[in-house]
Design a protein around this nucleic acid. Structure first.
Lengths: 200, 200
DNA sequence: TTTATATTTTACCAACTGGTAAAACTAAAG
DNA sequence: CTTTAGTTTTACCAGTTGGTAAAATATAAA
């Protein structure tokens, strides 16, 4: 056995990460406390700190796991597919993530709003590289006349904002839409929006 | 003299509110400390607490001032104006607020992300009432055939998300768009988007 | 200039913060 | 069944937190 995790270790680390996601996504890094996280997963504070040595270590690990998940949907957008389908599929993946991973979305939002002190390098390297690449793909589609002329970067921003809004501002959406299911109508609305925007 | 504020009182209260906006918008309620706010405006902590008795009082007052500013642009949308112009003017007002009042936007975003513990009643009363009213106006425009058929509530959500994104996610936008001015191109992009969405 | 009032500083407090040391306990391998 | 390694608890610490009391200082009205 090299340095394999025991069952207990895996269970506890998972449970800590889950609790930390809950707390950090709600209060941000400064607003979260180790004790709150410990209580949320039923461990004592020193016991939690046996698995992760500092509060920051938990946060960094949460964020670095998240960034993969976060960039994946855009990576999948395929230059060789049908442009509108590719963009719309991306929108749907992002909306689905807002629906199924709202805490992750809020964790990310909190980090960005607070000036991204711990992931600025990811934004400027991984994220920027990926967005540049995909913006180029979109530009090619525009140049070939396959979709309407749009600013590729702002198109991507609009997809981010329109989809993440339903996770990050959930309380507000729920306060206004007391009866309907936001996500069902959001999908229809966004489908209309983007088909009109991109139609030749 | 009834209970008029002295010059000193006005200057200090203003300066505290400004510093508090800076800190609360960056760290959220839990992440902000009275001491950070005090230092940001060059007062000692007890001196600051001479003007506002608790941390919460500062936050509540900041938020309640903000809510007026926040709802105003939508209030101005006029049933009797030209539908597309009215909606587009609303978009421009919101975008302008993101540009000129990014801290206020982030203060609001922080509060909502954290579950709106201090303004849930405002969302469910003032905000909901206003949105219901304006959604009805939009629905009338749709029914009269003056704009394309859209879900009025999701139209409003999309205006919020598309415009506030440029304030709340500013670091991310800046990381991706290293050279251009985001707001100028955003305005053009949003003009195109909404004219295509709403065109008959 | 005196007096009353408003403002600021100093010194403090109890609760909470992130984190540590070491003892006590538990599980698993031999 | 013992030894060893892994896990949890207890007790603690120094710095920070929101907030207070009272003394000291500045301001303004009479």
């Amino acid at each position: 056995m090299v340095d394999r995790e025991s069952r207990i270790q895996k269970r506890n680390k998972d449970s800590i990460m889950n609790a930390a996601l809950e707390i950090f996504s709600m209060y941000g890094f400064r607003g979260a406390t180790v004790d709150l996280i410990a209580k949320a997963c039923g461990l004592s504070k020193p016991n939690l700190l046996y698995y992760f040595q500092t509060k920051e270590e938990i946060h960094v690990q949460l964020l670095s796991r998240l960034m993969d998940t976060w960039l994946d949907p855009l990576k999948e957008m395929d230059e060789n597919g049908d442009p509108f389908n590719e963009i719309m599929a991306y929108v749907r993946r992002k909306l689905h993530m807002s629906k199924t991973l709202p805490r992750e979305s809020r964790l990310f939002a909190n980090e960005i709003i607070q000036g991204a002190p711990r992931i600025n390098h990811v934004l400027q390297n991984d994220l920027k590289t990926l967005v540049d690449e995909k913006a180029l793909v979109i530009q090619k589609w525009v140049d070939k006349g396959l979709i309407a002329k749009v600013h590729p970067y702002h198109l991507i921003f609009s997809i981010w904002s329109l989809t993440q809004h339903y996770a990050d501002f959930d309380v507000q959406v729920q306060a206004v839409l007391t009866d309907e299911d936001p996500f069902e109508n959001a999908e229809n609305y966004l489908e209309t929006l983007f088909s009109k925007l991109l139609a030749i």
